[in-house]
Simulated scan of single mutants.
Amino acid sequence: MARRPTVYDVAERAGVSITTVSFAFHQPERVRAQTRQTVIDAARELGYVPSGNARGLARGRTGALGLYAFDLMISDADAGAPADVPGEEDVADLDPRTFPLYVDEVERGFALECHEGGRTLLLASGAPNGSAVYDIAGRVDGLAIFPGTHSLDAVRSIARSIPLVAFSTPPMDTSVSHVSVDNRAGMVRVVEHLWTAHGVRDIAFVGDGALYDFRERLEGFREAMAFRAAGAVEPAGREGLTTADWAASLADLVASDRLPAALVCQSDQVALVVLDLLAESGVDVPGRVRVTGFDGILAGRLSRPTLTTVRQPFEQMGRLAARLLAARVANPRGEPEFSVLPTRLLARESCGCG
């Protein structure tokens, strides 16, 4: 590749100063239209591209925001060690529903906000707790991260240098902004809908409740059941469905015909697996058992039956995170924020709604 042309080359070709070249690209109102066109023509002839990094170095900023997401296909690897990345033939065999599809939708909102605000977006992903998060943090003015990508020590370390927003995590540090949704209220709506619209009383929660979002949903379920049942029905977990072995426990319930009337799943991905398991066993949904999810990913609309779920405002979450980062970049002394966005119930076929 030939040497990259510089601002000096453009200035020489256009017969102007380097200051005029800089103004032509970054403050065009300060340059006569004819002169600016001369500069642009010279740049085009030379293949010159203004360096955003150089401008950033001059003012201590890059002009970019970063978004770091976990990649379920990359295994944990120590710094300097190669990650175990599957080949294309392995990828083709994976169930696409195992991918964190909600991350893609949040990313879209983040990208739209960056575009509309004139900011560069840098994306990165890696294994949970991997070192790649530190690499992207050194290249951006602010960084948004998803749960499962970092340790608390990593978060606190990064937040000392640049503004940081964490999605769907508890308020862990006063130096970090947070964007989450009202998981408890969303789960309460699910229980209320099953209870009032369908007259269902025997309801079980499905999932291990490991992540922050899932724990919040489990707590919301238990609160709603306690309020509705007034202690008449044991909370979820009585059948062993709130453990990491929930799939095996559910298979046992199917085999012994001891299924509850409704299965409230901690996420859409869990609900889709539940639907598969029930379909393979010939269990009618929603005739024999009603199933609900949580998140509102696209796969739930394409399942058969279509999945009743609680929709997170993914695009709004991404946009809000980008705005919070931009505000902190503009005002480093500003206070981090903890934002909780509302959710909405989408009643579909899997619970018995049309």
Rank of each mutant, 00 (worst) to 15 (best):
G52R: 02
N53A: 15
D41T: 12
V21K: 00
R36Q: 06
S75F: 05
T19P: 03
Q34Y: 15
F25V: 00
F70N: 13
A79R: 09
G56R: 00
P28E: 02
Q37Y: 12
H26Y: 12
R36M: 09
V49C: 06
Q27K: 10
E29H: 11
G56K: 02
I74S: 08
A54Y: 05
G52Q: 14
R44Q: 15
Y68F: 06
E29R: 10
L72W: 11
N53G: 03
G47E: 07
Q37I: 07
S51E: 04
G47P: 02
T35L: 10
G80N: 05
R44T: 12
I74K: 09
T38Y: 04
M73L: 15
R55E: 10
G60T: 05
V49R: 12
F25S: 04
I74G: 01
A79H: 15
A43K: 03
S22P: 11
E89N: 15
F70V: 12
D41H: 11
V49N: 14
G80Y: 02
H26W: 04
L65D: 03
S51H: 04
M73Q: 13
L67I: 05
G66L: 04
G56P: 01
T62F: 02
S51R: 04
V49Y: 10
A79K: 07
A33H: 10
H26R: 14
L46R: 06
T62V: 08
E89F: 09
E89M: 14
